[in-house]
Amino acid sequence: MSAEEEENAAELKIPDEFLKAKCLMNCEVSLILEHKYEQLQQMADDPMNQMSQVFEKSLQYVKRFSRYKNPDAVRQVREILSRYQLAEFELCVLGNLCPETVEEAIAMVPSIKTRGRAHDDEAIEKMLNDLSLIKKFE
């Protein structure tokens, strides 16, 4: 992709290197950053001093908006979503926002309908059901 103007996540038009990179859900970022924070705490007396503002803000944000707290649940979410031939980016948007209805899911990730893949409403419904089950049994 050349021009910045063409970028549109709703149509999955994001720069190639991001499309190929591994996308992370908020709950996964939370696990990574918490781990790193603990490491920093062990090394320095005052970890707040060591952290950049970007790190601090990101940590607060992902803690606040993590849908799943338990590491096993996080792993399950990724495993279940990855059965549905989603792009990494779509998978993470769904995992982050946890839509409850098919219409909501399509509004959040319009590209699941447009790319001519085998995503009928039933498949999407099943996917959302699977997701809400994990949440219930967490």
Binding site: E7, N8, A9, A10, E11, K13, I14, F18, L24, V29, I32, L33, Q53, V54, K57, S58, Y61, V62, R64, F65, V93, N96, L97, M108
Partner: peptide, 30 residues
């Protein structure tokens, strides 16, 4: 590394930090 990059067309959740008559500011991570 872990990077945070917002994209046009992306839907995400954010926390409101300031409200005025022009609109409001919100923060999503950094």
């Amino acid at each position: 590394c872990v990077v945070f990059r917002p994209f046009k067309g992306e839907i995400l959740e954010a926390v409101v930090t300031m409200v005025n008559k022009m609109g409001f500011f919100a923060e999503a991570g950094p």
